[in-house]
């Protein structure tokens, strides 16, 4: 009995402090942001008071931000463009990551760690530095400030996120399966498409989610490498908070982005689970 109570006390001692910290600095701010998306903007930026000081004063709750969002095609377009850019970036990352992940998985054991490390190492340099590197490279070739430059930068920054889950998946494949396929007369290509590729689907889905989700929210890379006003969702959110200082609108946009992220993460998890079942 005493031991039981001791167990419960330990549980709170161990889980309590990080729980309390995250409750205060993650969950509470998130909830406040949801409420903020239903508020009026303040006179000098920020938020108008939640409880109006008197009749005729600004304040209270409204669904105006959502009405503006859903009544103007332009916001929808920017979200769509962000999805397009994220999807294309993910595809390019996949095409570049697959050969390297497969090569590492098929290399001798003692060489694998070094090869993985070589993929992760550039990732350790600051992402602004990596974006800046492309500024220097693309500058002399007149490719700076274009959509292609943005995609290139996004791929460069997010590539390891695709390689690692893919490699972790491919490494687990049993080589016996490929031998069996060969004995049954499958050629190199059909061995890949009918054995390796279907088995790697869970890795592809988790890698894609790890690339797609952060790309949906970027603002610095399009700002540095992209053309003027070739905005993505992230730029819109940043501008709402720090440019025009319309916090309620920015909060609404952030919530919309959150909904998109949850949808993508959910879809990826579902697809990965289904792929796992089939495999």
């Amino acid at each position: 009995m005493a031991r039981r109570r001791g167990e419960r006390v330990t549980r709170w001692l161990v889980g309590g402090p990080p729980g309390a910290f995250l409750l205060l600095f993650f969950l509470l701010p998130s909830l406040i942001m949801i409420v903020a998306s239903f508020r009026y903007p303040g006179e000098f930026g920020g938020l108008a008071p939640l409880f109006p000081a008197g009749p005729g004063e600004e304040g209270g709750l409204t669904t105006e931000n959502y009405r503006v969002f859903f009544s103007d095609w332009i916001y929808f377009q920017i979200f769509l463009k962000s999805f397009g850019v994220a999807a294309f970036t993910t595809l390019v990352c996949l095409l570049m990551a697959y050969p390297i992940a497969l090569l590492i998985a098929r290399s001798p054991h003692q060489r694998r760690d070094l090869m993985v490390l070589l993929v992760v190492l550039p990732f350790a340099s600051n992402f602004l530095v990596r974006v800046y590197a492309w500024m220097i490279i693309l500058g002399p070739f007149d490719l700076l400030f274009t959509r292609s430059a943005v995609i290139l930068g996004l791929v460069y920054v997010h590539l390891p996120f695709m390689v690692l889950p893919l490699y972790t998946n491919l490494e687990k494949h049993d080589p016996v399966l490929l031998d069996a396929a060969q004995d049954l007369g499958a050629t190199g290509w059909s061995r890949f498409w009918r054995v390796t590729f279907p088995l790697s689907l869970p890795g592809i889905f988790s890698g894609s989610a790890l690339v797609f989700i952060p790309v949906l929210g970027v603002f610095a890379i399009p700002e540095i490498l992209g053309g003027i006003h070739d905005w993505l969702v992230g730029n819109m959110i940043k501008e709402a908070f720090l440019g025009v200082r319309d916090w309620p609108f920015g909060s609404m946009l952030s919530l919309m982005l959150t909904v998109c992220v949850l949808a993508v993460a959910g879809a990826a998890a579902w697809l990965a689970a289904r792929g796992l079942q089939r495999a």
Partner: peptide, 16 residues
């Protein structure tokens, strides 16, 4: 989640 979401929600929380 995308970093920008944590950034802006903390901005609101700290200031407001």
């Amino acid at each position: 989640m995308p970093e920008i979401l944590l950034g802006v929600s903390l901005l609101i929380f700290f200031l407001n």
